[in-house]
């Protein structure tokens, strides 16, 4: 069963700004070799994107993530999806993770819909047989019909999103990571998309949902984390945490 433990996990990001890089290439052009020692120069800023976050998540947790822009929600989601190894502290994540942050990842606009389904499925960790097996489901759900045989550059952005959404949600992970509940397509499709997402959330063992929409937090989550300035401010039932967050924002 999926299980997550973060113990004092921090992420420090070093930002190498363009001025630093430009200068460095200038130095390198003149004295090749010596320039590489130059990595402690003042052009590097260190941002503490996540500071000392400790939490534990078990099977059945539906965890909402709230906080202002730049509070560290996305960084935390990336730690949870194993993309960011914490720069200090421990992150132990058991279970297959899938994140629906960038639906269009790894899509090739010149390839056909079917080729993209196969490529996306392999990126999601399926083998060729399993990739073939989800095709009927994607066909049925996306309702793109014969368009699936055309290169996806001919699609409208709505159609593209339908395909991306259909493939990404065809596989059920143990740990599901969502950045906002995704609204896709026209009204009829949006409704079906919501059903499908709902179903996916129910089947997952642990769900993380970062959202600015209090209603979706209340609807989907049984626990909420409030992030501020990279720190975990509060961890508790949605209503209490949302109230505390609202009180803090009002000040």
């Amino acid at each position: 069963m999926a299980h997550i433990v973060l113990d004092g996990a921090s992420v420090e990001l070093a930002i190498y700004n363009s001025r630093g890089r430009g200068l460095k290439s200038e130095i390198l052009r003149r004295t090749v070799g010596g320039g590489l020692q130059n990595d402690r120069d003042s052009s590097i800023q260190v941002v503490k994107a996540l500071s000392e976050v400790s939490l534990e998540a078990r099977d059945g947790d539906r965890i909402g993530l709230i906080g202002g822009n730049g509070a560290g929600k996305t960084t935390l989601l990336r730690v949870l999806s194993r993309v960011y190894p914490p720069t200090s502290g421990i992150a132990s994540i058991e279970g297959r993770v899938s994140s629906l942050i960038d639906l269009a990842m790894g899509m090739d606009t010149d390839a056909t819909g079917y080729e993209n389904i196969e490529m996306r499925s392999i990126m999601l960790g399926l083998d060729y047989k399993q990739a073939q097996a989800i095709i009927p489901d994607v066909e049925e759900f996306s309702q793109l019909g014969d368009f699936l045989s055309l290169p996806i550059r001919t699609y409208s952005s709505g159609m593209m999103l339908r395909l991306a959404f259909a493939v990404s949600t065809a596989v059920h992970p143990d740990i599901l990571i969502l950045d906002e509940v995704i609204g896709v397509g026209d009204a009829a499709f949006a409704e079906r998309a919501e059903d499908r997402l709902h179903n996916m959330i129910q089947k997952a063992s642990i769900v993380f949902l970062a959202s600015h929409d209090n209603n979706s937090i209340r609807r989907f989550c049984n626990r909420t984390l409030w992030m501020k300035g990279g720190k975990l401010m509060m961890d508790g039932p949605p209503d209490e945490v949302l109230a505390a967050y609202a009180a803090d924002s009002a000040v």
Partner: peptide, 8 residues
């Protein structure tokens, strides 16, 4: 980079 930042 786009894949590295999304899948481990």
């Amino acid at each position: 980079d786009s894949i590295i930042r999304q899948v481990a």
